[in-house]
Design a binder for these strands. Structure first.
Length: 420
RNA sequence: GUGACCGUAGCUCAAUGGUAGAGCUCCAGAUUGUGGUUCUGGCCGUUGCGGGUUCGAGUCCCGUCGGUCACCCCA
């Protein structure tokens, strides 16, 4: 049986790397005062058809369930979050700072940085309209990446604004109802020859709207209304992580104001994270009953893991974490098989004390047992045999030994807790 | 979804159309109470799958499934 395309097995190695990412996400989110939430993996397909728009709908992992409902595996969190918040908006103090680490499913052809299943950190801030919220969210994404060992040399936040593009479009005479279509053209303008862009723009019938004027605006570094965000981040000492880049527009239909994406400086990977404002989505989801400004972003595990693996400092940090997580503290060497009952008693006692303890399940040569202790990353080996009721304690790093009576062992270990 | 390239042992790869191999990993022994070395031995394949051409196919042809990359887009 083959693995389904785009899906992953998590053997212990891969599982440890995934857990490193998940636990780092959680740790940093809590530092910023976010609380974790979650929702269902399966949603009605309608939720995404109405709200996500564009590419995502074509990538839905959808099917009809046994009750005849057309359902989809979740491809993103925002519609679910919007529904949850709209349903109980009055139960929570504003602003809400919620995060989650869900697994998403998108039916697309897999390649580097893209699978049909992935984990994505999501943080959303709901109920705050000012740009201080945008800055707070961007500060979080910067600190998340710094927590993995990345620096300003490794990544950059490219900051843009749909509002700026709306104003640009209005200046040349564009109508608001054409905005979304216009954004799609802007999104592709850098990858399209100018003649093709002009062809696409012609349908709006606006003589001032040309590929040249569009590209000129796209490449301007004028912060405009984004200036307060840059000021805020400068005050935090995070200015070097952000650049103005109006080429960022984002495909999802619900974004309204500030939008941004994070890229590696080497440009070897796809976007590491992306987000922005969706001030109208909650009103849309609740038919106007709840109207709260909102913003959020996502960061996927696959691109992130690629970049960690390709960045020495980040890789070392991850590998150290993985080794620490997996190591056992103590390995019990059973030198004489007759001493197994005493050894089992010790194992149980030490485990109840919260130590990570391992031992051989069957008769094994002492040499093999020390080899196992080494491979499991144990710091101490306790040898049980002829010395009983004494236990030989060996520091595996220094290869030094000392004899401790088994009745005093718990006390002995407690006094050396820091070293274990 | 479209196009290009690629599928041989758990991994990395060999094999002018002529008997499917090596290194690493794993297991065991050398070493009966002390570790990453060394040496020896062992396990491991319907050459992704199905058809065709041929006396003979891992090798050539067709299909299919999977992978990589590009387009598309983004986590």
């Amino acid at each position: 049986m083959q693995l389904l395309p785009g899906f992953r097995d998590f053997y212990p190695d891969a599982c440890a790397r995934r857990n490193y990412i998940l636990s780092t996400w959680r740790e940093v989110a809590r530092r910023y005062g976010y609380v974790e939430y979650d929702g269902p993996v399966l949603e009605s397909v309608e939720l995404y058809k109405k709200k996500s728009g564009g590419e995502l709908v074509g990538q839905l992992f959808d099917f009809v369930d046994k009750g005849g409902r057309h359902v989809a595996m979740r491809p993103e969190m925002t519609p679910t979050l919007a529904r949850m918040v709209a349903a109980r908006a009055k139960d929570f103090k504003k602003p809400l700072k919620w995060f989650c680490c869900p697994q998403f499913f998108r039916y697309e052809k897999q390649q580097r940085g893209r699978g049909r299943e992935f984990y994505q950190f999501n943080a959303d801030l709901i109920g705050e309209a000012s740009l201080t919220a945008d800055a707070e969210l961007i500060a979080l994404v910067i600190d998340l990446l710094r927590a993995f060992g990345f620096t300003a040399r490794d990544f950059v936040v490219r900051l843009s604004s749909r509002t700026a593009w709306q104003e640009f479009f209005a200046r040349v005479g564009g109508k608001p109802e054409d905005e979304y279509e216009f954004f799609q053209i802007v999104d592709k303008a850098e990858r399209t020859p100018p003649e093709k862009t002009n062809e696409a723009l012609a349908k709006f019938g606006l003589p001032e709207l040309t590929a040249e004027s569009l590209l000129a605006f796209m490449h301007s570094k004028d912060p405009g209304s984004l200036a307060p965000i840059l000021e805020d981040l400068r005050a935090r000492g995070l200015a070097e992580y952000v650049e103005i880049d109006y080429a960022i527009v984002r495909g999802l239909a619900y974004y309204t104001g500030v939008v941004w994406e994070v890229f590696d400086r080497g440009k070897n990977e796809r976007a590491l994270a992306g987000g922005g404002r969706y001030d109208r989505l909650l009103a849309l989801m609740s038919d106007g009953r709840v109207d709260l400004p909102a913003l959020g972003f996502g960061m996927g595990d696959i691109v992130l893991d690629n970049l960690i693996s390709d960045t020495p400092a980040a890789r070392e940090k991850r590998d150290a974490w993985v080794a620490r997580e997996r190591a056992c503290d103590i390995y019990l060497v059973i030198a004489k098989e007759e001493a197994r009952p005493q050894a089992l008693g010790l194992v149980q006692q030490l485990r109840e004390g919260g130590l990570r303890v391992d031992f051989p399940l069957g008769p094994a040569k002492v040499g093999k047992q020390f080899q196992a202790a080494e491979q499991l990353g144990a710091r101490l080996a306790l040898l049980v045999g002829d010395e009983w009721p004494g236990v030989k304690v060996k520091h595996l790093a220094t290869r030094t030994e000392e004899l401790v009576p088994n009745t005093e062992l718990a006390e002995w270990l407690r006094n050396r807790q820091k070293d274990i």
